[in-house]
């Protein structure tokens, strides 16, 4: 519990530095630090699957952000902050914080899952009790995401696939040049 509080505090510090600094490289590294601390927090909360995924995705994001964009693109932050935008932002943060406080009061205490209160009615009880026999997978997380909830995973895979498809279609070069050529030809024909 103390470790989690310390991790949370460090994550808050990292997030504030990321927002406040004017150097984009420092901001990206601060966001990366927040991600790594989150990965450690997942490990202490007993979710090694998510911890591994968070760690490797964080490494990949840092590498891509630093190598592929920051060292090449325009990264200068210029101009003053708009007053109206800042007021709206602060108001939204206060609103979301109030809603969050109200929501967290409804939560069960930390470390006591809802399942412990209603052992027979919780949906996850079925998965835990029968997951191994029905799927044969020893890792219950994989059993849920690839067997009981495989349709969700198909949706996630489709999102990734479409994102890459769109990026490839936007960044290609040959087809655009051909289309430019076609346009002139069509202009001649018309």
């Amino acid at each position: 519990m103390t470790i989690l509080a310390a991790l949370l505090f460090l994550m808050l510090v990292g997030a504030i530095i990321a927002v406040e600094t004017t150097n984009l490289l420092s901001a990206v590294i601060s966001v990366g630090a927040v991600g790594f601390l989150l990965s450690i927090a997942f490990l202490f909360l007993g979710a090694p699957d998510i911890a591994i995924t968070q760690l490797v995705v964080e490494i990949l994001c840092l590498v891509i952000l630093i190598r592929a964009t920051i060292s090449r693109d325009l990264t200068a932050v210029s101009g003053e902050r708009e007053f109206f935008g800042m007021v709206v932002g602060v108001a939204l943060v206060v609103l979301v914080a109030l809603a969050g406080i109200a929501a967290f009061e409804q939560f069960p205490p930390f470390g006591e899952p809802v399942m412990a209160r209603f052992p027979d009615d919780a949906p996850s009880a079925t998965y835990l009790a029968e997951g191994l026999d029905r799927t044969g997978a020893a890792n219950i997380v994989t059993a849920v995401i690839l067997d009981f909830r495989a349709y969700d995973t198909l949706g996630e895979a489709t999102v990734l696939f479409c994102a890459i498809l769109g990026a490839l279609a936007l960044m290609r070069r040959r087809a655009r040049r051909q289309r430019d050529g076609d346009e002139t030809e069509e202009g001649d024909a018309a």
Partner: peptide, 14 residues
């Protein structure tokens, strides 16, 4: 992935 923590997504990222 079906026996130990990990799976297609994490392994694919590695």
């Amino acid at each position: 992935g079906h026996l130990t923590p990990g799976g297609g997504f994490a392994g694919g990222v590695i």
